[in-house]
């Protein structure tokens, strides 16, 4: 049985489509990282899985249970941590956890011990009597993680757990989530940055404008990005000197797939009636299609300078990776 199964999920807010025919399967014990920019639909997806947001269409199953028909049973097995740091409304850290333990029907006699254990797990036991609102953002995030665990859920939905954390708090939260993974929990965690959640995920899915653009195991994702690590860039080179020599040097580079002089400099050069030695001091520009990495780019620049070309500027015009993704149903 899948931990989470999503079939053709669509969510619309008026005319805006937040999730567009999304299908996804998460196996038990997997740690899925949902990556995407703001507005990609990550939070919407997590809120739907947490049973607090109604989808427009599609089928969702958690542990084989339909979300629309069994919300209470699903709440028993899902722990949801929203991205906002809500605060405890005058509660101390221990009271906060005890309160939510009561909300999850944890027997009254077990609540105090459970709260203490969870506070120790997230290394906040020494702050148990401090008001929640007085804790630092990192501590609040850890407390929220502890709160998510009060009913020992099998599936954890963590929305942007690293947002607003300093580097040290990130490392601590990473370690904590990894510890939860080792306990066999299925984790879905969202972030806008791959590097942020890479250390805690076994699988990655990319969401963009409500669509799943790419997903797979972490190694597959790494391989995918390695393939696209040096996408074609357009580099503009402005220089003084012999344009033919510069063009020859550039074309010798195995990473240059095309090179072209740029108007109006090329036209001005062609139209010039001046002697060749005087045109050397005219500013020229060429655009090259370059497939290499930054080291190769640096090497090309060095070659041009060694050839006597006076490079005025060497600028990357297009540095956006152009990765074509195909929406697909994926199993992670």
């Amino acid at each position: 049985m899948y931990a989470i199964e999503i079939r053709n999920l669509t969510k619309r807010y008026g005319r805006k489509t937040a999730l567009d025919n999304l299908s996804l399967i998460v196996m038990p014990g997997a740690a899925l990282g949902l990556i995407g920019p703001i507005g990609a639909g990550k939070t919407t997806l997590l809120r739907i899985l947490a049973t607090v947001l109604k989808p427009t269409s599609g089928d969702l199953f958690i542990d084989g249970l339909t979300i629309s028909q069994h919300p209470q049973q699903i709440r028993q097995i899902v722990g949801y941590m929203p991205s906002t740091l809500g605060g405890g409304a005058d509660m101390t850290a221990q009271e906060y956890l005890t309160f939510y333990a009561a909300c999850y029907a944890v027997p009254e006699n077990d609540r105090a011990n459970l709260s203490a254990d969870l506070l120790q797990l997230v290394d906040l036991y020494h702050r148990r009597n401090d008001p929640v609102d007085k804790l630092s953002p990192g501590m609040k995030k850890r407390l929220e993680l502890a709160r998510t665990l009060v009913h020992d859920p099998a599936i954890m939905l963590l929305d942007e757990p690293f947002t607003g954390l300093d580097p040290r708090a990130r490392v601590e939260t990473n370690a904590l989530i990894n510890e939860l993974r080792s306990l066999g929990k299925t984790i879905v965690v969202t972030s806008a940055s791959l590097t942020e959640i890479e250390p805690i995920c076994s699988h990655i899915a990319f969401l963009n404008e409500g669509k799943l653009s790419f997903s797979g195991e972490l190694d597959e994702v790494r391989a995918h990005f390695a393939d696209h690590q040096h996408p074609q860039r357009v580099i503009s080179i402005r220089f003084l000197g012999d344009p033919d020599r510069a063009l020859t040097i550039v074309k010798e580079s195995p990473d240059v797939s095309a090179a072209q002089p740029v108007q109006p400099y090329a036209a001005a050069l062609a139209a010039s009636t001046l002697p060749a030695h005087t045109t050397l001091n005219l500013l020229k520009e060429m655009h090259i299609a370059f497939n290499g990495d930054y080291a190769a780019a640096s090497q090309l620049l060095r070659s041009l300078m060694h050839s006597g070309t006076q490079v005025v500027s060497f600028t990357e015009l297009n540095n956006t990776p152009n990765i074509q993704h195909t929406p697909q149903k994926v199993m992670v």
Partner: peptide, 13 residues
């Protein structure tokens, strides 16, 4: 406003 409404509704209350 505090962001705790979803947490409450996602609980067994």
């Amino acid at each position: 406003e505090r962001g705790t409404y979803d947490i409450l509704r996602a609980s067994l209350i």
